[in-house]
Design a binder for these strands. Structure first.
Length: 743
DNA sequence: CACAAATGGTTTTTT
DNA sequence: ACCATTTGTG
């Protein structure tokens, strides 16, 4: 510890990192001692304050990096924070405890795993494994799985874990009638089985650490001694167990609490359905007496008009701490917020596309524009419209790299190599490719293995040796076990990358995809596996890689930094900003979502409203709200009325438009049908216009031109769906309407 | 045991 | 309309 830690710090001139902060921001940075709650509205420089505060504490030598605990919600936020601190300090920072709640807990739990009956090498299960394990655990209860879906019970267990409830702590008040009243017992069995497998699920990372803190004061004391400063980002999103964990770390039984600073915005709390509790913000003062509260209300992001629109909407919420965003930019009022009524959802998509084109011609980069919607399925019509117009776009969120089947298969193979006791991994791969070992055989094997208290791999080996499994499948299974064994030797000798290649090759997994009749998809899958191998190579060991992907599910590998319009959900947009933001689908039932309202009533409505607030405050210069009178949902057309949020906008700053229907005769049922057919298989309706039916199908081998992908050769035709091998970008699946025949 | 037909359910999502 | 999963058939 430094001797002069608390001696007065002389600063002849003000350090440059403090220059340019406003009074509130500066106060938030310099109030380093004692509990602090920073209520930071959208665009008020929250991240800047947090990182500057961090740097300030370090530069004033109030603490070493390893004495600071900084918690974020996403890995992305953690990464950004680390980078920005390095910039201020002008050197990389090492030794920080900076990460997500879960990654920090994982780090701690590796140290103390034996205290909860785990080995330090425990594996972390993902959602898929969790559910499969739960289904197995539920078997003895012989429940009707239709009536009591395992997924629902899984959700309930997660909620319990989010509340830090162990199975034995579930009282009647917490219990449910799920699983025919057996939920508590199944939860207990599930936890027991996890321990047998030396595994834990995501919720356990936090639950185990809280359990350890509660039952082993010596461990907690260690961390009390270590952490002098605690910083928490996105505090409004913390759930009960995260709050408990923070409180355990921050409050010292003897003496002063750690210096805890939490940053949050109650108006941006949009994850209550995931267990987040706004109440955590409200009770901060009770738990940390003498806490100071600083409000950041100066917005440096959006034009006054956009701010006014956002403020008017959020003002309709009752459950608020109260905060007013003030324009902090020295600019004029800015453009009016557009509200555009369209006849139907296809027009909506096309109008957005046209606006994007116009803005682009005026000089705005595609990357400066975003379309933000309530739900993921709403991206479809926009994708079609943008593709047709040749506008580059990217979907943020969506299918993540590590969730793809082939990636998870490949990882399961590696787990089976590395951890012969990992039954869940082995179950996934034992019959993939088909080895004549289906569900029936697997259940039988599982039973034998459990009775003998051995792993599936061991048991299978024995059964083959004792000729309990015969014929062709015995031979293929023996090959699999041999391949696993071989890969194990290779890990030691030639490293984990070669070992992965070997196991995927020799198990026949890669061949399975090479022989797959769906050429296009299979090729994509093989590409993804190549991508995976590259990613694995960036880690020193396979274990390090597995830990990484367990905690960081997003794909850094696939992120392109190209100039593209971003499509994403409002949830995914939190924390981002764009000069131009399109907000389509502002209709009753869609946004606010009927589903939410049915489930959560007024509380849910307020959360939907916060979502609208988040959406609007993403915009820097221009916000365009749209709603359609009629929307295609699944197969049908549904009429809809404008969202109540539109009425909550301030007239003064709004401009309303209702462009005429672009395509056929306005309004008629037949026109709608014709429109519907434009983007679907032409054979799906008898209302198909002649022009479409007469369009010649594109022949195999034709050369075609695509606005974005360039030239390519058609190598497959399935009705309207073409498989085209493009010169530049390779194999793609394209609708015939998107290409022009060249020769 | 594998494959094909039928069924049901479809917000938001990180870690 | 579309998907993933379950149920029925060879």
């Amino acid at each position: 510890m430094v001797d002069d830690l608390f001696s007065p710090r002389l600063s002849p001139s003000e350090p440059d990192y403090l220059v340019g902060l406003n009074a509130e921001q500066r106060l938030a940075v310099e109030t380093t001692e004692g509990p602090l709650l920073i209520l930071a509205g959208a665009g008020t420089g929250k991240t800047r304050v947090l990182t500057t505060r961090f740097a300030h504490i370090l530069l004033q030598q109030r603490a070493w990096p390893e004495q600071i605990l900084a918690v974020t919600f996403t890995n992305k936020a953690a990464k950004e924070m680390r980078e920005r601190i390095s910039v201020i300090l002008d050197k990389p920072v090492e030794g920080l405890w900076l990460g997500t709640f879960h990654s920090l807990c994982a780090r701690m739990l590796r140290q103390h795993a034996p205290r909860v009956g785990l080995e330090r090498s425990f594996t972390i299960l993902d959602a898929d494994d969790q559910l499969r394990l739960l289904k197995q655990v539920m078997e003895p209860w012989k429940l009707d799985l239709k009536r009591w879906p395992p997924a629902q019970l899984m959700h309930q267990i997660q909620l319990w874990k989010d509340k830090a409830l162990l199975p034995e702590e579930i009282t009647a008040a917490h219990d449910t009638d799920l699983a025919n009243g057996q939920a508590r017992a199944i939860y207990a069995a599930y936890q027991a089985r996890l321990k047998e497998l030396n595994a834990c699920d995501f919720g356990d990372l936090m639950l185990h650490m809280v359990t350890i803190f509660r039952q082993h004061p010596d461990v907690l004391a260690q961390y009390h001694h270590r952490f002098r400063y605690i910083l928490v980002d996105e505090y409004q999103d913390t759930n009960a167990i995260q709050y408990l964990w923070l409180r355990l770390l921050a409050k010292h039984p003897d003496g002063d609490p750690a210096n805890i600073a939490c940053v949050g915005d109650d108006d941006q709390s949009i994850y209550s359905w995931r267990g987040a509790e706004i109440a955590n913000i409200l009770r901060f003062e009770n738990d940390f007496p003498g806490a100071r509260i600083i409000r950041l209300e100066q917005n440096y992001r959006s034009t006054p008009r956009i701010l006014s629109a956002a403020s008017h909407i959020i003002a309709h919420n009752e459950d608020r701490l109260g905060k007013t965003l003030r324009p902090g930019l020295e600019s004029d009022e800015g453009e009016l917020v557009d509200v555009i009524s369209t006849p139907d959802s296809d027009d909506e998509a096309r109008i957005v596309g046209m606006r994007i084109q116009t803005l682009h011609q005026e000089g705005q980069a595609y990357g400066d524009m975003a379309i933000l919607m309530r739900a993921g399925f709403q991206t479809r019509p926009f994708e079609e419209a943008l593709m047709r117009m040749g506008i580059p776009y990217q979907i943020i969120g969506g299918l993540r790299f590590y969730e793809r089947a082939e990636i998870r298969d490949a990882i399961a193979y590696m787990r089976a190599v590395l951890y012969p006791l990992d039954d869940l991994a082995f179950e996934r791969i034992v019959n993939l490719p088909k080895r004549g070992f289906g569900n029936v055989a697997l259940s039988r094997l599982r039973l034998t293995a459990r009775e003998a208290g051995r792993s599936l791999q061991q048991t299978l080996q024995q059964q083959i040796e004792h000729k309990l499994i015969k014929g062709k499948s015995a031979a293929t299974l023996a090959e699999l076990l041999a391949a696993l064994e071989k890969a194990r030797k290779i890990v030691a000798k030639e490293g984990h990358v070669v070992a992965t290649e070997t196991i995927l090759e020799e198990s026949g997994y890669l061949t399975m995809w090479r022989d797959d009749p769906k050429t296009v998809e299979a090729a994509g899958r093989l590409d993804n596996i190549g991508e995976l191998l590259r990613a694995i190579g960036e880690f020193p060991t396979m274990e390090a890689f597995l830990e990484h992907i367990a905690l960081v599910m997003e794909s850094d590998t696939l992120q392109e930094e190209r100039d593209k319009v971003s499509l994403m959900t409002l949830h995914a947009a939190k924390g981002l900003e764009f000069p131009t933001v399109f907000l389509p689908g502002w209709e009753e039932g869609i946004f606010p979502s009927q589903r939410s309202l049915d489930e959560g009533g007024n509380r849910a409505l307020e959360e939907e409203r916060r979502l609208a607030y988040v959406g609007l405050t993403r915009a820097r210069e221009r916000a365009i709200i749209l709603h359609a009178a009629s929307r295609r949902i699944y197969a049908n057309w549904q009429d809809s009325i404008p969202s109540r949020f539109i009425e909550e906008l301030p007239d003064k700053h709004i401009k309303r438009h209702s462009p005429a229907r672009h395509n056929p005769r306005p309004g008629s049922f037949f026109a709608r049908q014709a429109q519907a057919n434009m983007s679907r298989s032409p054979s799906s309706s008898r209302y198909r216009p002649e022009a479409l039916s007469n369009r010649p199908t594109i022949p195999l081998g034709a050369t075609v031109q695509h606005s974005r992908y360039g030239e390519g050769v058609v190598i497959g035709v399935e009705g309207e769906r073409l498989s085209v091998n493009f010169e530049d970008v390779g194999l793609k699946r394209i609708m015939a309407g998107f290409v022009k025949v060249v020769s």
